[in-house]
């Protein structure tokens, strides 16, 4: 009796959970497919070649074909590997990426989880992926994997600081850790325009530090191809490799979405102060288009870095963080505080 009642009570919730799980998985899959395709096309454009153009019109279905190939491929486990950890690692990486996406508002009221400490929550979740990477490197029983994983550990732990400090500058300006309130505070203009040079500096620091966080060139040391063949995921193949690959792109989207939300106003249309007429016209463009447009702009920026710059060395990478980015972001934070206290921002 009680069992059936509780089942009936929880039935809608279970259905809702299942639906949202399917929704998130679909969103991730589409996001991953699109971003991989976009990356390859951007790279091709910068390198004077065509990029994928075989499968589908302009090669649109290329990434789908790649995914099918990866799914049907055998997931090979090396003989001496720690089988359980080896199996677990890709899941941890992808779960942490999924969790980090939860509090980001994609349009007015469209958010998986409206949490009050969103700005702290996202980097906290995103940095969990280091556990998966370390696990993968250790369990593979491969020297290249281990070196890659150790590099990743040092790198993510250091750059976490700069990411946090640059996010804090916006938190100081708005006085809130909630993503929704941060977006609403940009009703009369985005922070990158309102906050003068200090916010611009913290935006640059955020982009650099988060590029390092998601292991992309010029900071792709954990998987440095010409040094460590493929770094921590050398031994992975098939769908397990696909998970690492997908998580890289999802992480890139999260980072860009956070940057878009904090510095470019998220789904908030382009508003200038109290020009009501202009703001009204801008409001006709729906929020999701603004949000995804801004995110894609930041993603393009990160891709642009990747296809231009050579890779840093591990000690230079840490030097850059501790000697340049950390002190600058600390000083910058002081300036932001000063601006906030004096009310100099618009």
């Amino acid at each position: 009796m009680s069992l059936s009642i509780s089942l009936i009570t929880y039935f809608p919730i279970i259905i809702r959970l299942i639906l949202s799980v399917i929704g998130v998985i679909c969103f991730f899959a589409i996001l991953g497919l699109f971003l991989v395709y976009a990356e390859r096309k951007v790279a091709a454009g910068m390198q004077l070649r065509l990029g994928p153009n075989r499968v589908g019109v302009f090669g649109i279905a290329q990434t789908v074909a790649d995914t099918i190939k990866l799914i049907t491929k055998e997931s090979f486990t090396p003989g001496m590997a720690d089988k359980f950890l080896f199996f677990l690692a890709p899941f941890i990486v992808i779960i942490s990426a999924t969790l980090a996406l939860a509090p980001i508002p994609m349009a007015k009221g469209y958010q998986f989880w409206n949490i009050d400490v969103g700005v702290i929550y996202v980097p906290a979740m995103a940095s969990l992926s280091i556990i998966g990477i370390l696990m993968a490197g250790w369990a593979s029983n491969n020297k290249y994997s281990l070196i890659g994983a150790m590099r990743s550990g040092a790198q993510i732990v250091s750059y976490e600081l700069s990411v946090g400090l640059s996010l804090l500058s916006i938190v100081i300006l708005t006085g809130s850790l909630n993503f929704n309130e941060i977006v609403m505070s940009q009703d009369n203009g985005w922070w990158i325009f309102k906050g003068h040079i200090p916010v611009l500096i913290s935006f640059i620091i955020f982009i650099i530090a988060s590029t390092a966080e998601i292991n992309r060139t010029p900071f792709d040391l954990p998987e440095a191809e010409s040094e460590l063949t493929a770094g921590f995921h050398t031994e992975y193949s098939g769908i397990q490799f696909a998970m690492f690959f997908l998580s890289e792109y999802v992480n890139m989207f999260i980072v860009s979405a956070v940057a878009a939300t904090l510095f470019f106003g998220g789904w908030m249309p382009f508003h200038i102060g109290h020009w009501a007429a202009f703001n009204d016209i801008m409001n006709y463009i729906p929020g999701p288009i603004w949000f995804f447009g801004k995110s894609l702009f930041v993603i393009f920026l990160i891709m642009w870095f990747r296809w231009t710059f050579p890779r840093l060395r591990i000690d230079q990478l840490l030097n850059l963080e501790w000697k340049y980015m950390m002190p600058i972001s600390l000083v910058n934070l002081l300036f932001v505080t000063l601006i906030t206290i004096m009310g100099w921002h618009f």
Partner: peptide
């Protein structure tokens, strides 16, 4: 910092130029 940023930006300018003015693949 200024020197390194400007050297990076000039590199990005080149790749950006190729990306925006993409006409014919060299391959």
């Amino acid at each position: 910092i200024y020197r390194s940023m400007s050297s990076m930006l000039s590199g990005m300018q080149l790749t950006g130029h190729y990306f925006m003015n993409f006409r014919k693949a060299e391959t």
